[in-house]
Design a protein around this nucleic acid. Structure first.
Lengths: 212, 212
DNA sequence: ACCTGAACACCGTTCAAGT
DNA sequence: ACCTGAACACCGTTCAAGT
């Protein structure tokens, strides 16, 4: 009997399962159980697990384009790029290991690439950028966000599983003697939004310096 | 009888296997076979597979510190940071999926963190940076390199498995109508070293703008 | 058209038994 | 101290069989 299983429902359930249990627990059997169905059923709707993972990545990136479409055009390229960076980070952060799992995945959906067009157009006409400069700007910010969030999520999850390793005292004992500056930097180190905004600002400064 | 299996030999063989066959083929049994031994033997030397993966990540990062130690101090922070970025990229590139697999992994070895000290010291004394600025600089460059190489390796591997998708004509058909700037950027797009150096330069410009 | 039970080859890991 | 055979619970995937 039909149970109304669709690709979309499978992908949505897979993302939920990933968030709740992690990548290792995302098995075809567990996913089927969550949809109240046996494992082979899923192969009627999806060719194999890799295709499912690709669909998940596409769904995540589509959320980025949707969020981006809901944001009004900024006053200049800097505002546009900052908005893009924040949306991308928020989306990666919203899923367990989001940045590591979903970055750089071959995209199954041209729509995701096409989202670049309105941004490129604005910067080429209003800011006098070449298409290459505009494309560089998106890719460079993307690379920065991916690297930043990978480290951010890794640290957050290590702090959960191993809290004392991240106390200042434990860390300094672990580092041993002779690294005063590393320790001082560790004590002054911030994280989360302020750190992201600061680093993002530096990247955007670099892009601005190039145009000038 | 003893077969002279050591943690070091296991980790080295695991890295070879990863490069040759990829992550999915890196199984305990296949690794044991490569070392001419049965699977349970490895559990005498390593607690479990996760510990092996951690050791692999540490070995990769140790290569970075070793390479870095072999490089003379640059004339200023910019040269030092560029050298660091190139070493990190080269090391990630040298292993299959290196950036995705080995970035942001909790490091089992304090030595890797301690490598920061000489760099921080030079920049704080010679360039007048605060420890936070110096620490930011390393982390920001690290994030950029990670994001850059993840995309670089992903694209390289997609191009191997699906060559026609990466021809200009195929790509433009796939994108459909109405994205002239995305297409133009795609035609002009470079890759490899020149692209890396250009993007790295922008990041370093940003760090320089902050100091001034 | 859609779902299932049974089966296949494989996985990480444990453990008693060998040397 | 170091290695192995046998076994366990589990995995992705296939396929004939059900409705």
């Amino acid at each position: 009997m039909a149970k109304d299983i669709t690709r979309e429902r499978i992908v949505a359930a897979a993302l939920e399962l990933l968030d709740e249990e992690g990548m290792d627990a995302l098995t075809v059997r567990a996913l089927a159980a969550r949809l109240d169905v046996r494992a082979p059923t899923l192969y009627w709707h999806v060719h194999n697990k890799q295709e499912l993972l690709d669909e998940m990545a596409t769904a995540v990136m589509r959320q980025v384009t949707d969020a981006l479409a809901g944001i009004p055009a900024g006053a200049d390229w800097r505002e546009d790029l900052a908005a893009y960076a924040r949306v991308l980070r928020a989306e990666y952060l919203s899923r367990r290991d989001g940045a590591r799992i979903f970055s750089g995945t071959r995209l199954a959906d041209p729509q995701v690439i096409r989202m670049k067009e309105p941004l490129l157009e604005r910067w080429v006409t209003a800011s006098g950028w070449t298409p290459v400069e505009a494309d560089d700007a998106i890719d460079l910010v993307t690379a920065f966000v991916v690297g930043f969030v990978i480290e951010e999520q890794e640290k957050r999850q290590s702090a959960e599983s191993d809290p004392e390793r991240y106390s200042v005292a434990e860390r300094e004992a672990w580092l041993g003697e002779g690294t005063p500056l590393v320790k001082e930097a560790g004590r002054l180190r911030d994280d989360g939004d302020p750190r992201f905004e600061r680093h993002l600002g530096i990247v955007l400064d670099g892009l601005g310096a190039r145009s000038a």
